Amino acid sequence: MKQELFEEIVNKSFNSPYHKLLKLELVELGKGMAVVEITVDESILNALGIAHGGATASLCDTAMGVAVRTVGALPTTVEMKVNYLAPGPIKERLRAVGKVIKEGKTIIVAEGEVYCKDRLIVKSLGTYFDLKK
């Protein structure tokens, strides 16, 4: 990945008000992949006292979208499927890994996985449109 794109992702693309609201942290970047983390605190709990599905879906979408950005696309989400496999407990750190699995001319497909420690708790598949095209 070019240094210019790396800096743009870290300083601009990832630094949105929504990412700040959820306290998402970008922890790793590579061509076609990104790792984003969040700590489950009271601000993202549902009524059952676990991470709200919307927060974990946002975590997945962000990891996948940033992974798509690393290949030079300017992504917007077209479609996303999320399978919730286990809850995200309070005070735990969740780690989302996004990977590009298919680059087309205008459509990019990515997969996302969210882990709590070593346990897979969310599996996601996303389709992104490249706004540059």
Rank of each mutant, 00 (worst) to 15 (best):
E92D: 14
G30R: 09
L120R: 09
A67R: 02
G54P: 04
T56M: 00
T56E: 02
G53D: 02
V10N: 09
L24C: 09
L21W: 14
S16Q: 15
G72V: 02
G32N: 03
I38T: 01
T39H: 13
K99Q: 11
L21K: 07
I38A: 00
E8A: 11
C116E: 10
E4Y: 10
V40W: 02
L85F: 10
S58P: 09
M80L: 07
G49L: 02
E113F: 06
I9P: 14
S16E: 07
K105C: 09
K102P: 10
L94Y: 05
E111K: 06
V71A: 11
E7P: 14
I90K: 12
K23H: 11
R93A: 05
K99S: 12
F6Q: 14
M64F: 04
S43P: 09
I50N: 01
K132L: 08
A86K: 01
S13N: 15
M33R: 15
V66E: 06
A86L: 01
T62Y: 00
L125N: 14
A63W: 01
P75C: 09
E37A: 11
I107T: 13
V66Y: 04
A51E: 04
L120G: 10
E28I: 00
V68L: 10
E42N: 06
L22W: 08
L74F: 13
S16I: 06
T62N: 01
L120M: 13
D61N: 03
T56W: 00
K102N: 15
M33G: 12
I44Y: 00
K117Y: 13
L85E: 06
Y115R: 05
V68R: 03
G32S: 04
K20G: 08
K117D: 15
Y128M: 05
D61S: 05
L125F: 11
L59S: 02
N15L: 13
N46K: 00
K20C: 07
E7V: 07
G104N: 12
K2S: 14
L59T: 02
D118P: 11
V100W: 10
V97F: 05
K99A: 11
E28V: 00
T127V: 12
V71Y: 09
A86C: 03
F129K: 15
L125V: 08
P87R: 00
L24G: 06
E28Q: 06
A67E: 08
Y115V: 01
K31R: 14
E7K: 11
A96S: 07
R95S: 08
L94V: 01
V100Q: 06
T76F: 11
T77K: 05
L24Q: 09
K132V: 10
I9A: 07
F129N: 13
V36P: 14
K133E: 14
T70I: 02
E37C: 09
G72C: 03
I38G: 01
N11A: 10
S124A: 10
L45C: 04
T56R: 00
M80A: 01
V35L: 03
L94M: 07
N46R: 01
T39V: 15
G104L: 06
I101Y: 10
P89H: 13
E113Y: 05
K105D: 13
V114F: 07
D118G: 12
G126T: 04
E113W: 04
L94Q: 03
R69A: 07
A73G: 14
E79T: 03
K132F: 09
I101R: 12
V114M: 03
G65D: 07
L85G: 13
A57I: 00
E113T: 04
Y18G: 06
K91M: 13
L26N: 04
V36K: 03
R93T: 08
E25A: 09
A47M: 07
